[in-house]
């Protein structure tokens, strides 16, 4: 049945819940596009036959046209939903993505991500006075400038504003400026401890 491949792409993406990014299916996408090309060419052939008088073929042509539109919709939705997921990664992970996620992206998506990063950065520089405003910070309203954190994995040396460096070793606890460690908490390196 026509349209199954493209629908399969959508089904796989739908199954990966919670904004998880599954690998980009180059091969399936190519096959779906190939199927569309075949449908289009068959239609072209039948259109010229229908023009020559075989009006009973019109329904068949319409059927193929529906399949073409359906494939188009599935592929567009697939690509668009992936972009939404990739955009979410920028807010959740920060501007550098782990390699494991990058392996799941196509070259075009990597390109899109870096452009999205750039325009977001340009916007954030333009608001909030001279220094700009990091919109990804303080998603929850802060109550204090410093917070207590525990290290969940060996991260290495980490420099804070006053120039001192702390060694983030697994299971060590630190009292750090909130804005410096918010991103590390989101990435799962540190854990926020409430007193």
């Amino acid at each position: 049945m026509a349209g199954e491949r493209a629908a399969g792409l959508v089904r796989e993406l739908h199954r990966a819940a919670g904004g998880h990014l599954p690998p980009f299916r180059v091969e399936e996408l190519r096959q779906a596009l190939e199927e569309m090309r075949a449908l289009y060419e068959q239609n072209q052939a039948d259109v010229s036959e229908a023009k020559a008088g075989r009006t009973d073929l019109i329904f068949l042509i319409r059927f193929r046209h529906c399949c073409l539109l359906r494939n188009q919709r599935c592929i567009l939705a697939y690509l668009y939903d992936r972009l939404l997921r990739i955009r979410a990664l920028r807010w959740e992970y920060g501007s550098v993505l782990p390699n494991t996620i990058q392996f799941h992206m196509s070259a075009e998506e990597v390109e899109w991500f870096s452009r999205y990063k750039k325009s977001l950065a340009t916007y954030m520089r333009s608001v909030g006075g001279e220094e700009g405003l990091d919109l990804t910070q303080d998603i929850k309203p802060p109550k204090s400038l410093y917070i207590e954190v525990r290290c969940l994995k060996d991260y290495g040396e980490f420099e804070i504003d006053d120039g001192t460096t702390v060694l983030l070793k697994k299971n060590s606890q630190h009292f750090l400026p909130r804005w410096k460690c918010e991103q590390l908490i989101r990435q799962g390196v540190l854990e926020h401890i409430l007193s």
Binding site: G19, H20, I185, H192
Partner: peptide
Amino acid sequence: ASQITASSLVQNYGKRKF
């Protein structure tokens, strides 16, 4: 409510051995 938590995406990827 004011606790900063690891993003659920990160947690999910963690579960999947990434």
